[in-house]
């Protein structure tokens, strides 16, 4: 194994070494082969995971890397979703609708960033929370946005691929997600990503070395919202139907939970957090279905709790798992991954 680097570019290239390249290629191949041997149901789960990955990447950029909290990201996702639907209905091709959704949402991100520049901690939390709330309330009142009833999302034309619609959509979402991961990775390695982290660690020193705090905080808000907008666009497509209640405060909290669970400030963390939490949420939704354990739970509920409320166990467990992660692995799943890697590298010592 070669440990010494001979060229500074080795710190910039996408794959550290041949081994990493190999495993990435295997993963990619697997992802692309998947639609041919699993049921559509599993594809939709992966779609949901992928969409959450995109939001998490953006949110982590803002929270984990720039150190600004946001409790309103569901609002950005909503803006992205609604922009896409409006544009698709107007006959705009999907690729433009997607780009426009990202850009429009990014603009909203900058607009929210402006009053938030001086705010910290709970003050920023309230400002972003207010934004998320405002977005869904306003959408609920707008008739051309379908009001509270919501809107159907037009199908995009993917016939040229020669595949089934669900399969083509899966490829669209996966490709965009992979691009988002690479874009985030390059951004974070660059002068701009470094500036974000500098602001997080010491805004005073950051300004003293020439970083324009206003500009870079707005960049961070804008880029973070851009990702949420793209994710919203994709989410609308695969749901096929959107309404304001989808984008509630709970969704914003869910995104925050993803990045904390995965690991703040880490791309791997964003990806792992999104995958694991999405899976967990789906599993816990029908907790009674789990063999043996589900029966026992139902019996217990009938005796001590209520049988009708048994689905609420999922909230209880999610909360409990969240606390356990923060208590025992504050760097999240990414921290766990790092420790496992180090353990195997050193084994058997």
């Amino acid at each position: 194994m070669r440990n010494l680097k001979t060229d500074y570019f080795e710190d910039l290239q996408l794959f550290k070494d041949g081994l990493q390249l190999f495993w990435s290629a295997v993963l990619l191949l697997l992802l692309f082969a998947l639609p041919f041997f699993v049921k559509t149901y599993y594809l939709t789960i992966i779609n949901l995971m992928a969409v959450n990955v995109v939001v998490a990447l953006g949110l982590n950029l803002l929270v984990g890397n720039t150190g600004q909290i946001s409790l309103g990201h569901a609002g950005f996702v909503a803006i992205g979703a609604y922009t896409t639907v409006l544009l698709l209905k107007a006959g705009v091709p999907f690729i433009f609708a997607l780009t426009a959704s990202g850009l429009v949402t990014g603009l909203f991100g900058v607009l929210l960033g402006i009053p938030s520049l001086k705010l910290e901690g709970p003050y920023l939390a309230i400002a972003t929370l207010a934004f998320g709330l405002a977005v869904t309330t306003v959408i609920g009142r707008m008739d051309f946005l379908g009001g509270r009833m919501g809107m159907n999302v037009p199908k995009i034309s993917l016939g040229w691929t020669g595949l089934k619609y669900d399969q083509s959509l899966y490829y669209v979402i996966i490709i965009i997600t992979i691009l988002a991961v690479i874009a985030t990775r390059n951004l974070l390695k660059s002068r701009i990503g470094r500036a974000f982290q500098a602001i997080r660690d010491s805004d005073i020193a950051a300004s003293a070395i020439g970083i324009n705090l206003t500009k870079y905080k707005l960049y961070s808000f804008g880029i973070s919202a851009f990702f949420a907008g793209i994710a919203g666009s994709l989410w609308a497509l695969y749901l096929g139907f959107i309404n304001p209640t989808l984008f509630s405060f709970i969704l914003s909290i869910n995104f925050l939970v993803i990045i904390v669970l995965g690991g703040l400030g880490s791309i791997t963390g964003s990806v792992m957090g999104a995958i694991v939490l999405t899976y967990l949420n789906l599993q816990l939704e029908d907790v009674v279905e789990i063999p043996i354990l589900g029966d026992a739970l139902l019996r217990f509920s009938e005796l001590f709790m209520t049988a009708t409320g048994v689905s609420n166990v999922s909230w209880f467990l999610t909360g409990f798992i969240l606390i356990l992660v923060v208590l025992f692995e504050p760097l999240g799943l990414y921290g766990l991954w790092l420790r496992t890697k180090i353990y195997w590298k050193r084994w058997p010592f």
């Binding site: 996408l14 990775r185 951004l187 660059s190 002068r191």
Partner: peptide
């Protein structure tokens, strides 16, 4: 390098 330019960093 601008935001667009840094996307090609790799």
């Amino acid at each position: 390098a601008s935001i667009a330019a840094v996307l090609g960093l790799s």
